[in-house]
């Protein structure tokens, strides 16, 4: 299986990197952009034939290592690979 994991800074936390990129985008004179948030994208390959336990394994590593719940939110989807 493969898990595709997104980790983002919580909405309440200022993302200075996103803000800087937003300013650069606004300098490009394309469209009308109001916010940029930058996060992490992580792919994890693993063996597990049961979707429920796969979800709980990925949830566990997200909670304990891949994100810090104090400052980040995470989200993932799991893909079965044959």
């Amino acid at each position: 299986m493969k898990a595709k994991i997104k980790v983002m800074l919580k909405k309440s936390i200022l993302d200075p990197q996103g803000k800087t990129v937003l300013h650069a985008i606004q300098d490009m004179n394309i469209g009308n952009f109001s916010d940029v948030r930058i996060g992490k994208y992580i792919e994890v390959s693993f063996n597990n034939s049961n979707l429920d336990s796969a979800k709980s394994e990925i949830d566990d590593i997200c909670k304990k290592l891949l994100s810090n719940p104090v400052m980040e939110d995470y989200d993932f989807e799991i893909e079965e690979i044959n």
């Binding site: 936390i13 200022l14 200075p16 810090n68 104090v70 400052m71």
Partner: peptide, 17 residues
């Protein structure tokens, strides 16, 4: 210490980057 939960909170990127 914050990552391990021995102290509360977190240390994030400096506001001015």
């Amino acid at each position: 210490l914050t990552e391990s939960g021995l102290l509360p909170g977190a240390l994030i990127k400096n506001e001015n980057r």
